[in-house]
Simulated scan of single mutants.
Amino acid sequence: MPEGHSVHRIARQLDRNFVGRVITASSPQGRFAEGAALLNGREMIGVQAVGKQMFTEFEGDLWLRVHLGLYGAWDFAGEILVDPTIASANGRMGQTNQRGTVLDPAPAEDAAIYDDAGENSLNSIGAPRRARVNVRMSEQTKGLASELTEWPPPPVGAVRLRLLTDLICADLRGPTACQLQTPDEMLATVAKLGPDPLVGDTSEGEERFITAVRRRNVAIGQLLMDQAVVSGIGNVYRAELLYRAGLNPHKPGKSVPVENLRALWRDWVQLLDIGVETGQMMTMDDLDPEAYRRAMASRDDRHWVYHREGLPCRTCGTNIVMEDMVGRKLYWCPTCQA
């Protein structure tokens, strides 16, 4: 499941390419035909990510709610405008996975960084899994642009929703949720979500997070995955945040000192910013330039504990443990997080 940084990057790309434009909407797959018909011909007013969900406003008080879930992803094609707020891992302007022309391209001399799964860190948006086409906005997609041979491009696979302008096409596949909402329904959905560092006042979000954790006699490792407690954290960020905080994932939330929770929230603010900017869940600090490029090129060099079961802890040498916590894999160091 994509974590919060990916959804924020999708929202920014939609904002850059679709907001303020009248949209042609369709459902090539047919499963969202009625909803697409209601969106068709309306102007996109705005778009906002909250944790793992995205809310897009259309004229006429109509909102589109999308939750990518485990398998959802977006493809972009056409003359794509790069969002200037999204940089790459090596400091240049970000792109998205796409077919067609990318406007405002990065300098040619600043080569992209491809990791061992073929992912260009510029192009990381969508479901964190391998895709069979190289235009999927996915964290494990080869970030290579393909030439368009016709416009609009033919749908590839089961496209739930297509958003189209004269220049840009965005295809949504495999989401857990794709539904229309009234303004009140949208607000009710957002009200059920925990704080997101990139939405609203960060200090207020910090207090909401601390209050939500301290009232629960539930393991902190479980609470960080609860989207009603804090928005956007998934399996990778959960493991890395707890390691960086030196917290035992089994410690009950109400037993975690307030100062530790403040530090945890502020670290989440920092890591989310890095993830949105680079497109990668980079959690290693103070790397020299060569080590940084290695980390961008290989997930094995990017994290402290995630996906490192049986390997020695980078700090103390104890073997990293992997266990099941409420149906999800948890990685941690029994010594550093005792």
Score class of each variant (00 low, 15 high):
Gln270Pro: 05
Ala338Thr: 10
Val218Trp: 08
Thr211Ala: 15
Ala263Glu: 09
Gly194Cys: 09
Arg132Cys: 08
Trp268Met: 04
Val230Gly: 06
Ala111Asp: 12
Met186Tyr: 03
Phe58His: 04
Val159Leu: 08
Gly205Met: 10
Ala127Cys: 13
Asp285Glu: 13
Ser138Cys: 13
Leu242Ser: 04
Leu68Met: 14
Glu139His: 11
Met322Val: 14
Gly253Pro: 02
Glu109Ala: 07
Leu167Ser: 14
Thr211Phe: 10
Val7Cys: 08
Pro249Asp: 02
Gly35Trp: 00
Met325Pro: 04
Glu207Cys: 04
Pro154Arg: 10
Tyr243Ile: 00
Asp226Tyr: 07
Thr211Gln: 15
Thr85Gln: 14
Ser298Glu: 10
Val22Leu: 06
Ile23Thr: 01
Lys192Ile: 09
Asp115His: 08
Ile45Asn: 07
Arg302Asn: 00
Arg314Met: 12
Val199Tyr: 11
Pro197His: 01
Gln181Met: 15
Cys178Trp: 01
Gln140Asn: 13
Ala111Glu: 15
Gln29Cys: 11
Gln222Val: 09
Gly279Gln: 00
Gly20Phe: 12
Val47Tyr: 02
Val236Ala: 06
Thr182Ile: 05
Cys316Gln: 02
Pro153Met: 08
Pro105Thr: 06
Asn319Ala: 14
Arg293Met: 07
Pro84Ala: 10
Leu81Gln: 15
Asn120Ser: 14
Ile210Leu: 07
Met282Lys: 08
Ala87Met: 10
Arg314Lys: 12
Leu167His: 14
Lys254Met: 15
Val230Met: 08
Asp115Pro: 11
Gln98Arg: 15
Gly327Gln: 07
Gln53Ile: 09
Ser26Asn: 00
Arg216Gly: 01
Asp196Ser: 05
Val258Trp: 04
Gln53Cys: 13
Ala89Trp: 03
Val326Arg: 06
Thr315Glu: 14
Gln280Glu: 08
Leu167Trp: 10
Asp15Trp: 09
Glu259Ser: 14
Met296Asp: 04
Gly174Leu: 04
Asn17Asp: 06
Arg238Phe: 05
Asp104Phe: 12
Lys52Trp: 06
Asn235His: 09
Gly41Trp: 01
Arg31Lys: 13
Ala36Lys: 01
Asp104Leu: 04
Thr202Tyr: 00
Lys254Gly: 05
Ala117Asn: 15
Leu264Met: 11
Thr318Pro: 03
Asn217Pro: 00
Gly78Leu: 06
Gly310Ser: 11
Gly100Ser: 06
Asp286Ser: 13
Gly69Val: 03
Trp63Ala: 02
Gly78Phe: 05
Met322Gln: 14
Tyr237Gln: 05
Ala338Leu: 12
